[in-house]
Simulated scan of single mutants.
Amino acid sequence: MDVELGIQNVARPVNFTTEQSADEVSKAISNAVTQGEPIDLVDDKDRHIMVPAGALGYAIVGSETKHAVGFGAL
């Protein structure tokens, strides 16, 4: 699952891949924002990505499908 977090007053978004499902990521972000707690997500390398909920500008939760590797004909 690809995730992109936009943080207020930061030029570059935070991009990472996680083993969590789209529902788990969305629920974690939603709960953190409504409760005013830090967003705490774990990437596929077992690192914690923590963002203050008040600093979140946007979140894009990608698809769970794996992308094909290689060259294809157009």
Rank of each mutant, 00 (worst) to 15 (best):
A28M: 09
N9P: 02
G36D: 02
V10Q: 03
N31I: 01
D43Q: 06
G36L: 09
D40V: 14
A32I: 12
F16W: 08
Q35H: 10
S30H: 11
E37R: 11
E37L: 14
E19I: 04
T17P: 00
Q20C: 04
Q35T: 15
R12W: 04
E37F: 05
T17G: 07
A11R: 15
S21W: 09
Q20N: 13
T17Y: 13
I29F: 02
S30F: 05
K27S: 14
I29A: 12
P13I: 05
E24S: 11
S30M: 05
Q8V: 06
V25K: 04
G36V: 06
I39F: 04
Q20V: 06
P38M: 05
E24Q: 15
A32G: 02
E37M: 07
A11S: 15
N31R: 10
A22S: 12
A22F: 02
E37D: 10
N31G: 08
G36Y: 01
D43S: 10
T18W: 07
S30T: 15
A28Y: 09
D44Y: 02
V25H: 03
E19A: 07
A32K: 00
I29D: 12
E19M: 07
G36K: 06
V10T: 07
V10E: 02
V33C: 00
T34Y: 00
A28V: 12
V33T: 09
S26Y: 05
T17D: 12
Q8Y: 02
N15Q: 11
I29Y: 11
V25C: 05
D40A: 11
D43L: 03
Q8L: 09
P13H: 09
E19G: 11
F16L: 07
E24Y: 06
I29M: 09
Q20E: 10
Q8W: 00
A22M: 06
T18Q: 08
N15A: 13
P13Q: 11
D23L: 11
I7C: 00
E37I: 10
V42I: 14
V33M: 04
N31F: 00
V10R: 03
D23M: 04
